[in-house]
């Protein structure tokens, strides 16, 4: 057997966090105002998963990375313009909603299906990566469900570090309570790792990587199967943006001693 990994990363787009988000009620339930027009970014934790996957693939010869992305085709194409320049991967695109108000069970079903459909994917080399939660639905549940559907019961959530040991086992650091990591050792693939921040900075754009990726990205987008996902059985009674605006007292020209006293009183109060 070859020593490389088959790294499948599940990740899609979310609205740029600097955008103002406003909920609206559409025919299919809640959605975001101008959702299709909002500038989007790769879901941050899924992005970390992708960079970790590419890094691992680089260090383990004969590895390969796939990115399985569920989102509206046109917006996926836009996202790929930037992501495809970062790290090498093969895209598996699914044409459906990337909105937050979809149900993780439905999303997991289409993702698992897509993973199963990847030609040449070898289960005993499979590391299934994703973010520990999305910045849209923020459920932190999808990856575990995809793993279950694929029958993978070695699963890790909120991973910040993965080390491949000399014997091929995987040492995994997961975030747990109290600013601690749980250290586990998994004998090897297949496993599910839902990543938190990891250890890698965002890779710089590399036009050469972009060119190679785009050769497979465009056909993948053309091939993208419709993947309708919603939240069947869910009745949204209300979606609101909480009042955020505070009546800020802006204190200028107050002597430092006075500010410090005011703060100490407040801290103790």
């Amino acid at each position: 057997m070859s020593s490389g990994f088959h790294l499948v990363v599940c990740g899609s787009l979310v609205p740029d966090p600097l955008q103002t988000l406003e909920p609206v009620t559409g025919p299919a339930g809640p959605a975001l105002k101008n959702e299709m027009m909002l500038p989007s970014v790769l879901d941050p934790w899924a992005g970390h998963a992708l960079y970790e996957a590419a890094h691992l693939a680089e260090s383990a010869p004969d590895s390969k990375v796939w990115l399985v992305s569920l989102g509206p085709k046109a917006r996926l194409q836009q996202l790929m313009m930037s992501i495809a320049q970062k790290v090498p991967f093969e895209l598996v695109a699914l044409d459906g909603s990337a909105g937050g108000f979809t149900d993780p069970t439905e999303v997991a079903a289409v993702l698992a299906n897509a993973v199963q459909g990847i030609a040449g994917l070898e289960r005993d080399r499979l590391l299934l990566f994703g973010g520990c939660a999305s910045a849209s639905r923020d459920a932190g549940a999808t990856m575990q469900m995809v793993g279950e559907r694929l029958g993978i019961t070695e699963q890790f959530l909120a991973v910040d570090e993965l080390t491949v040991e000399c014997d091929g086992s995987l040492k995994v650091l997961e975030r747990i309570e109290g600013a601690q990591y749980q250290i586990s050792v998994c004998a090897g693939p297949p496993a599910v790792l839902a990543w938190a921040t990891g250890n890698l900075p965002e890779p710089p754009n590399n036009p050469q990587v972009g060119m190679v990726n785009m050769r497979s990205v465009m056909p993948a987008l053309q091939r993208a199967q419709p993947a309708p996902v919603a939240a069947e059985g869910v009745k949204f009674l209300d979606v609101t943006v909480p009042r955020q605006q505070r009546d800020t007292r802006i204190v200028r020209d107050m002597p430092v001693d006075e500010i410090a006293r005011e703060l100490v009183d407040w801290i103790r109060g």
Binding site: P17, L21, G100, F236, D238, V241, P242
Partner: peptide
């Protein structure tokens, strides 16, 4: 939803 941007019932 959306990382504490909106609350749904």
């Amino acid at each position: 939803y959306y990382r504490q941007r909106m609350a749904a019932t």
